[in-house]
Design a protein around this nucleic acid. Structure first.
Length: 559
DNA sequence: TATTTTCCCC
């Protein structure tokens, strides 16, 4: 006969369903088949996809026990399913449990709520919530925390906060969950306030995970003052954030970098006793955002020489640098390397490759990758739409946009930049205006100054200059200098010197240091043979000490 | 209960 403790540990270290069935048989002959603990372990194993899940077997175990299944066993099933690839299955197991008139306990609810959080369906969350209220388990700190987590996962930070405030018992995890919830829902200043309250008023000591989220909040809101304060607070807890915890050090350096303090970020990075690929990626991302491509590539080289293996995010950074600096040869090299090593194609990496090819002038290669891509997301479609639009294939870009919609992928505000650019480059005025209007009416996307810029560009290129001007005057956002530039360029093309003069002068008054404006005006005068105007503009520039800025291009040319 | 992440008018 075998002991209960032995069979439990055998099940826990079991490697396959086949072995598990043997262990089940062993449990039966040992008279342990009705024992709650080994049975729960059996159920957990069957429901765990990482170990070759067999849910049918798990359910069969519960049905044919020869004894009534206990709450504990059902909990095991709910928990295992809540962690698997189909969390919704945990909810049906939870419902089975209620139907079999077993009483849920303080373990059941956190498992069921975990499933609700992973498969965000507010209706399910509210159902479980109602049952928690009815059974009085809301006083349990694990249940209360799981409820908060469920609501933030469903995007309802306000309800989460009400539950948080009403919870009779809160621990550091409850606080952390609420703080992280604010960050995930794009409310970083609420996250920082709550962290402040936690430290100053509630005097609950934050742990390392709380600190990570508090710093992430400061990074998200680019709030350096709060970031320094959080850093200070951490330091006062007799704790070395840089030396002892890679994750915390990484998010700390990322916070400084995102808040514009690149040098502190670098110092922290250099002081880290160990770094993982995420730390390298964070710094690479920072240099990319600052356009410091050389540093990106140097860092990438250092990363490899220290033996840290690049992951997909690393490749996004390197390819982004190639795209922005026109480094096609390097980009191709990365592509060749990825073809050899990364057999499974990551949609993000492919999008980055497409973008690199588009920006270095090879639209064909971009298209080739796009066509072989499975599971295209909005970024992949958008990247290709913009790529085509910029290469003068406006009609194809719009065709792609329609295809994307038919495929059920929802466009975002950047997709519309591509769509409007396509219309602009193809001279499709009416379509462009139609798409612009549909942004708000159909998709609920508020146009930004960039979208207005596209439409003004579209109207100006097509010679609808008066319409372009009235659109700019009616804009709810302050027009950028670039927008006026579009109109002036239109004036240049269509010889509207009078209009250019009127607009140019009023814009120059507001932006006296913008040299491009004077150059544009001077060109317009020259085009119309108004040499006096040219002379006047040049003199004006000279008086203001402005220099013509020279254009630069950074596309690599094959030797 | 944890960190990085690609699409943006010229």
């Amino acid at each position: 006969m075998i002991e209960r403790r032995t069979i439990v540990s055998l099940i826990e270290s079991c490697g396959s369903m086949r072995q598990l069935k043997q262990l089940h048989a062993l449990a039966v002959v040992s008279g342990l088949a009705r024992d709650v603990v080994p049975l729960s372990r059996l159920v957990e194993f069957c429901a765990d996809p990482a170990r070759g899940a067999d849910l049918a077997y798990a359910r069969a175990l519960l049905l044919h026990l020869g004894r009534a299944p206990t709450t504990h066993m059902h909990n095991s099933l709910v928990r295992a399913l809540s962690l698997g690839p189909d969390p919704a299955a945990a909810l049906s197991a939870y419902r089975d449990m209620l139907r079999s008139s077993l009483a849920p306990d303080h373990f059941t609810f956190p498992f069921a709520l975990k499933a609700c959080a992973r498969a965000p369906a507010p209706a399910f969350g509210r159902c479980v919530h109602a049952r928690v209220v009815a059974t009085g388990f809301g006083a349990d700190v694990y249940v209360a925390t799981a409820l908060v987590h469920t609501y933030v996962s469903c995007g309802d930070a306000a309800s989460a906060r009400r539950l948080f405030d009403a919870a009779p018992n809160r621990n550091v995890v409850t606080w952390t969950t609420m703080i992280a919830g604010y960050v995930d829902n794009g409310r970083p200043s609420d996250a920082v306030s709550l962290f402040r309250e936690m430290v100053e008023a509630a005097q609950v000591e934050p742990n390392e995970i709380t600190m990570v989220h508090a710093l992430a909040a400061c990074a998200q809101s680019r709030d350096l003052d709060s970031g320094r304060w959080v850093h200070d607070t951490i330091a006062h807890l007799e704790f070395d954030p840089v030396g002892s915890n890679v994750v915390l050090a990484t998010v700390l350096l990322d916070m400084y970098a995102k808040c514009g303090n690149l040098s502190t970020a670098r110092v922290l990075f250099d002081r880290m006793p160990q770094r993982n690929e995420v730390s390298w990626n964070a710094l690479i991302g920072v240099y990319n955002q600052h356009g410091q491509t050389d540093d990106v590539l140097r860092l990438f080289g250092e990363m490899r020489s220290t033996g840290c293996k690049p992951d997909n995010v690393t490749w996004l950074g390197v390819l982004g640098a190639c795209a922005n600096k026109g480094l096609m040869a390097l980009g191709q090299g990365v592509h060749a390397y990825l073809e050899k090593t990364n057999s499974r194609k990551d949609v993000n990496v492919c999008t980055s490759l497409m973008d690199m090819y588009s920006k270095t002038g090879d639209a064909c290669s971009a298209l080739r990758i796009f066509h072989t891509l499975n599971g295209r997301d909005v970024l992949a479609w958008t990247s290709m739409i913009i790529g085509l639009a910029k290469h003068g294939h406006g009609k194809d870009a719009l065709k792609l946009f329609k295809e994307m919609e038919e495929g059920g992928v929802v466009p975002d505000h950047i997709t519309f930049i591509g769509v409007l650019t396509a219309c602009s480059h193809a001279g499709m005025v009416e379509e462009g205006q139609m798409y612009f209007n549909s942004m708000r009416s159909v998709y609920g996307i508020k146009p930004t100054v960039k979208h207005y810029g596209c439409v003004v560009d579209l109207l100006s290129r097509a010679g609808h200059l008066a319409e372009a001007e009235s659109l700019v005057r009616a804009m709810p956002i302050r027009p950028s200098i670039m927008i006026w530039g579009s109109i002036l360029t239109g004036c240049e093309i269509y010889g509207e010197v009078g209009m250019a003069e009127r607009i140019g002068q009023s814009v120059a008054e507001l932006n006296p240091q913008c040299s491009g404006l004077y150059v544009l005006l001077s060109n317009i005068y020259a085009g119309a043979g108004r040499w006096h105007g040219v002379e006047m503009t040049r003199r004006l520039m000279w008086q203001k000490g402005l220099k013509k800025t020279h254009g630069s291009s950074s596309t690599e040319v094959k030797a």
